[in-house]
């Protein structure tokens, strides 16, 4: 940490984390439609990256985006996602920090890349379907959801889907970041807010 944090920065972190997670939830509600469920890692970052880009334009210090990641992790953990989400969120926050730092917190290109990297935390939400978590997770939902549901979910999520989801996150984040840059240019530069 080069410069000391001011209260102003902390408030910016809080407000924008709230906006980001609300947008995320709003889009994730579309996941009730079964076909869209699979494309959530693409859609969520796509829309949520727009406020994220505005947030990036406000970031001047090292550490702010890591705090956002941590906060989102805590929020997700509190509402009941399993613990790997914390690791994913903090990890994505730190990685994003590095990308932003490379662009010295000013370059638009690095911001777009950073929004792609930050959306990787989303993988923490779906990790339960894959790898070593898979069997335990499906066993735990078996009597609640019924055999038919479990079989269907199993057939939707072979291991390659996880890697497809990584790509979807990155693509969603990048396209969303570009969209966000456009929105910033159209609405916020003129008003002197970005």
């Amino acid at each position: 940490m080069e410069k000391k944090f001011e209260i102003k920065d902390l408030i910016t972190v809080g407000v924008f984390s709230a906006l980001y997670s609300i947008v995320m939830f709003a889009v994730a509600c579309l996941g009730f439609i079964p076909i869209l469920m699979v494309f959530m890692p693409l859609l969520c970052p796509l829309v949520a990256a727009i406020p994220l880009m505005l947030y990036f334009s406000k970031i001047k210090h090292f550490g702010m985006i890591t705090i956002t990641g941590t906060l989102i992790g805590i929020l997700m953990f509190i509402i009941g996602h399993p613990y790997p989400i914390l690791i994913f969120c903090i990890g994505a926050g730190l990685l994003t920090e590095v990308v932003l730092k490379m662009g010295n917190y000013q370059s638009i290109k690095h911001c777009v890349a950073a929004s792609a990297v930050f959306s990787l935390w989303f993988l923490g939400m779906v990790i339960a379907f894959f790898f070593s978590f898979r069997d335990a997770y499906f066993a735990s939902i078996l009597d609640g959801y019924g055999q038919e549901y479990v079989d269907a979910m199993k057939s939707y999520t072979p291991t390659w889907v996880f890697f497809a989801m990584i790509i979807m996150c990155l693509v969603g984040g990048t396209v969303g970041g570009l969209l966000g840059a456009k929105v910033l240019k159209k609405h916020f530069r003129k008003a002197g807010m970005a």
Partner: peptide
């Protein structure tokens, strides 16, 4: 405080 302040602002 760098966790508790943003968190309370957020909620």
């Amino acid at each position: 405080s760098f966790i508790s302040i943003p968190m309370s602002v957020m909620f």
